[in-house]
Design a protein around this nucleic acid. Sequence first.
DNA 1: GGTAGATTATGCCATGTGGCATAGTCAATG
DNA 2: CATTGACTATGCCACATGGCATAATCTACC
Lengths: 202, 202
Amino acid sequence: MTGGTRDRMVLGAVDLIRRRGLNATSVREVVRHTGTPRGSVGHHFPRGKLQLVEEALNFAGTEVGQPLAALVEAHGVEAGLRAFIAAWRKVLEASAFEAGCPVLAVSVEEFVADDGFPNPEAQARLLDIAEAIFARWREVLVQGLEKEGVPTARAARLATLVIASVEGTVALCRASRSADALDEVGTELTALLAGAIAAARG
Amino acid sequence: MTGGTRDRMVLGAVDLIRRRGLNATSVREVVRHTGTPRGSVGHHFPRGKLQLVEEALNFAGTEVGQPLAALVEAHGVEAGLRAFIAAWRKVLEASAFEAGCPVLAVSVEEFVADDGFPNPEAQARLLDIAEAIFARWREVLVQGLEKEGVPTARAARLATLVIASVEGTVALCRASRSADALDEVGTELTALLAGAIAAARG
DNA sequence: GGTAGATTATGCCATGTGGCATAGTCAATG
DNA sequence: CATTGACTATGCCACATGGCATAATCTACC
């Protein structure tokens, strides 16, 4: 099933949105980039570009969230944080700092339809998806922290901080074309979580 | 001098990039949006859209950095952090969570020229500017922290964390159309800085 | 008043875009 | 082997975009 035209299109959309952002990613470019038949777009995605982007977002969200959840479950939040950061470093370095997080990209842009106008409904759909993805990632961390004894309110704040700061750091790294910021943020977040867990135990 | 055509264009570009992002912001839209003469674009910005965007970025960067530096200088890092967060909350709430940080937007997109192709040189110029802006903001915090006795290395890490997490949080807030994440992150960052300063004193 | 330079008005161009319609191809099934 | 439905090929549309060229208009300043 993988390798089908449809999947290649979704994958290609993820990759292009990662690099160029939402509006700079054209359906035609996805098609060129993936060597996929142009005429099949309307067949596989009857709702057009919006549907393609929605599926790309959900795919990317799961691709990150699934392993994260498994790792936190198996080895705890701290291991999860390390893996989360390591995964983003890999995305950055493997692309010479040209690729980032597609969910962030969508959160920061406004979807402009083919008529050149923003479409409030479409925009709301995309933001709903982005919000849900971030929420899922966050929830994984919240539960991991609670499992370590961190009180709910604190766990919630820390989880938000982790997601927000890592996403922000990935953007900073793209701007500076360097992973240094990831190291700095990783160090502080690691210590912060360790401290919160230690405090919960004491 | 303020209110001139040129300045209105730069201001308009800042506002549109804030909301729509880099590539969804067209020069023509800036012109429409500001009631500014279309024919003057080439006159005031001979290097075209790229130049407009460059100036918009630098303007936005200074608009944030200047007050931040003044506040940190006058009342310390913790006051600076509070103001930094409050400023972003204002941007978010005043726009119904439709506006964010233009520097972040540029960091996350790839500039695509009018021929439909990305231009490596142009992209590098924009990233250089974004990097410099983030670096300036960060430097303000670093110096503020050092002034409170926080060791250089730690101050650097904390400053990066603050910039990255607030930028990330603004994006999260756009996705969730709520300022809740800003509260959570603000609480944690405030405590973190206070702790680092207290530790430096003790 | 007139003249030079800065500013604006307006139209054109090549090109890209998303969506669609029509027609063609292919594979599985009867 | 024929037929049916999924998939693909290709061209077209209306529209937007950035840049430019030419002409008109303002605005000092002499």
